[in-house]
């Protein structure tokens, strides 16, 4: 089954890319690996029939957000990683242990739902048209709130990075 094969491929690549994202010294490299990871997740979205979300993932995330990251990195002219003494090493190790604990807990939590099998999907499942209808009918108020949130974020970003003239 090609779907299954593709899924395993995407899954493995995304995990490796995520691992590399958080381990590279140079943030530019990290950002590139993050793009790879996001692309893989978008691919999984496609396999799951969420076409519109996959498109948004690629356009907004891999396109806009990551571009923003790279742009900032370049603007700040950061080429080398951070040097200097690692602080709070012990407590960070403890943090990693707790993160592993959370992972185990998440596995336990997901155990009960793994028996769900998908129903037959309708023809327009995950299409932009049907999702758009849902967004602008049932979820129109949250959508407007999110729109305002984005506006606020834009204004906030401008205020924070603007010249300190005031």
């Amino acid at each position: 089954m090609p779907v299954q094969v593709l899924f395993y491929l995407f899954a493995c690549v995304s995990v490796i890319a995520a691992f590399l994202t958080i381990t590279r010294k140079n943030p530019v490299i990290s950002a590139v690996w993050l793009v790879v990871c996001l692309f893989c997740v978008a691919g999984i979205y496609l396999l799951l029939g969420a076409y519109f979300v996959a498109a948004v993932q690629v356009i907004v995330y891999a396109g806009a957000v990551l571009m923003l990251f790279l742009f900032v990195i370049m603007m700040l002219n950061l080429r080398t990683g951070i040097v200097g003494q690692m602080r709070n090493l012990g407590i960070k190790l403890l943090g990693v242990l707790i993160a592993l604990l959370v992972f185990v807990q998440l596995r336990l939590a997901f155990k009960g739902v793994s028996l769900l099998t998908g129903p037959e999907l309708s023809a327009d499942f995950g299409q932009a048209a049907s999702l758009g209808k849902l967004l602008f009918s049932e979820y129109v108020y949250p959508l407007e709130v999110i729109a305002v949130l984005l506006l606020v974020a834009v204004v906030g970003a401008l205020v924070l990075t603007g010249k300190e003239s005031a």
Binding site: L48, G49, A50, F52, V53, V56, Q57, V60, Y61, A64, V65, L68, F69, L116, T117, G118, P119, E120, L121, S122, F125, G126, S130, L131, L134, L135, E138, Y139, P142, L143, I146, L149, L150, V152, A153, V154, G156, A157, L160
Partner: peptide, 25 residues
């Protein structure tokens, strides 16, 4: 996908929008 309903996808879109806003700020 597993429930056959599109409502979670709406939230996935919201999450992406939120991530964009968060990244900007």
């Amino acid at each position: 996908n597993k429930l056959g309903t599109m409502d979670p996808q709406v939230f996935a879109v919201f999450v992406i929008a939120l991530a964009a806003a968060e990244a900007a700020v």
